[in-house]
Design a protein around this nucleic acid. Structure first.
Length: 221
DNA sequence: CTTTTACGACGTCATGAGCG
DNA sequence: CGCTCATGACGTCGTAAAAG
């Protein structure tokens, strides 16, 4: 698929500013764009007229501008500390924090799937995914057993590399799912906060009108 | 009924942040 | 400094709804 289709890509959720991110992507290959980051870019673009008038945006600076913002959890938790009404994104792995990540069966909080055999079986109506069957399946439970120093033959090295790759992919897969979940939660919280603030705003406006009526005597003559 | 479109979810890659 | 985690970007797939 070519790149121009990206524009019409419908990544439904929050990739509203693909054009912006594309330009950033081209320049810095970071592509680390986000909504708050965009806001920052806009804000800085406003205040940093001089730099822009020179026509040269220091790539390093741009990099900083586009650098990754704190995680959703951080933002939301900071928000929630300011505003009592905003719920926190809960730390769901608080208990299994100490457990090594390379466990065969992971205690996924939502219990969406199992990873015991490299097969991702979704419960409910979710589709079933299968990891591309590696030539040497992950030796579940003995992950990280062999140290690189003990490997000799190229084949062993290749197997080790494959195993490491599969492990990394599996972890990243989980991380991506979790990240999306948090993102959705984050958006929901923001939406609910908007609703609350709108109500608040409306009330304040009404109050203001009432006070105006009270304080300003009728000027009938 | 078939095709098109929109959307959500996923897997993977790249990369910055943070930690030991 | 290397490693792991978090997340944006991208491409793909499945599905529901609309259009033909």
């Amino acid at each position: 698929m070519t790149m121009e289709t990206v524009e019409s890509q419908h990544d439904g959720s929050i990739t509203a500013s693909l054009t912006e991110s594309k330009s950033a992507h081209v320049q810095t290959q970071t592509g680390q764009n986000s909504i708050p980051a965009l806001a920052q870019v806009a804000a800085i673009a406003e205040t940093d007229e001089s730099a822009e008038s020179e026509g040269v945006i220091d790539s390093h600076k741009r990099r900083e501008i586009l650098s990754r913002r704190p995680s959703y959890r951080k933002i939301l938790n900071e928000l929630s500390s300011d505003v009592p009404g905003v719920p926190k994104i809960e730390e769901e792995r608080s208990e299994e924090e100490g457990t090594p990540p390379s466990i065969a069966t992971m205690a996924v909080p939502t219990s969406i799937y199992q990873t015991s055999t490299g097969q991702y079986t979704a419960t409910g109506d979710m589709p079933t995914y299968q990891i591309r069957a590696p030539t040497a399946a992950l030796p579940q439970g003995v992950v990280m057993a062999a140290s690189p120093g003990s490997l000799h033959s190229p084949q062993q090295l290749a197997e080790e590399a494959t195993r490491k790759r599969e492990l990394r992919l599996m972890k990243n897969r989980e991380a991506a799912k979790e990240c999306r979940r948090r993102k959705k939660e984050y958006v929901k919280c923001l939406e609910s906060r908007v609703a609350v603030l709108e109500v608040q705003n409306k009330k304040l406006i009404e109050e203001l009108e009432t006070l105006k009526d009270i304080c300003s005597p009728k000027t009938d003559y």
